[in-house]
Simulated scan of single mutants.
Amino acid sequence: MGSIIHEPIHRELHEVNTETNKVDINRWCLTRYSPSVQQYNTIILFFHLIGPCIINLGSALFIIFGSAQQRSTAQTSRTPREHIYNQFSEHKQLLISPIILLILSLPRLIMSMLSECINPSNHRLLFIFGYFISFTPSMLIFIIFVLPSALYRKKFQETFRRPRRLIHS
């Protein structure tokens, strides 16, 4: 919250008359930044996008290499490289998920970096796309986290098999 405190400070409310009779008034909330605040805002946007991805990837690599090291100590019949390969294949969803979330967040970052003013009535699809693209990672959680993981996929399938067994019994 502290990293984006500059945003509400620089917000301005503007009224735009859309009809000649001045009955229809649209209100737009705009942010105007000085060059230094704009540079800070850009850095914060990238940090909020890339920071969690780097932390997730680092944690996944820590889990994979830590598990491989423990297994190579306990099971000396296999090489450490084989243990690392097995851990990578076992925990591949930990590596795939942050990368997919990063890719899905890129359009939102691009939309927020557009600094020119656009008349929303002329570019409705652009604004609708920009609004709904921010929901894409949330809507695709099943595809991003459950399907790549063998364990989660197995548990998901078991959840649907259980009610069918109860119905047929």
Rank of each mutant, 00 (worst) to 15 (best):
L49G: 05
I50D: 01
G51H: 13
P52L: 05
I55G: 01
L57V: 13
L57C: 09
A60G: 15
A60D: 11
A60R: 00
I63P: 03
I63Q: 09
F65Q: 10
G66N: 08
S67H: 12
A68C: 04
A68K: 01
A68D: 00
Q69T: 05
R71F: 07
S72V: 04
S72F: 03
A74V: 01
T76Y: 00
T76E: 09
S77V: 11
S77W: 09
R78S: 12
R78T: 12
T79A: 10
T79C: 05
R81Y: 13
E82V: 08
E82Y: 07
H83F: 03
I84V: 15
I84G: 00
I84D: 03
Y85F: 15
Y85D: 06
N86C: 03
Q87N: 04
F88H: 06
E90V: 02
H91S: 11
H91L: 11
H91Q: 12
K92F: 07
L95T: 04
I96Q: 10
S97M: 10
P98V: 01
P98N: 03
I100G: 02
I100L: 15
L101F: 13
L101Y: 12
L102T: 01
I103F: 12
L104M: 14
L104F: 14
S105G: 15
L106D: 07
L106G: 04
P107Q: 05
P107C: 10
L109G: 06
I110V: 15
M111L: 06
S112L: 13
M113G: 10
L114K: 13
S115T: 09
S115M: 02
E116V: 03
P120G: 02
P120M: 04
P120C: 05
S121N: 14
S121A: 08
N122D: 14
H123S: 15
H123G: 01
H123V: 04
R124P: 08
R124T: 13
R124I: 11
R124G: 12
L125T: 09
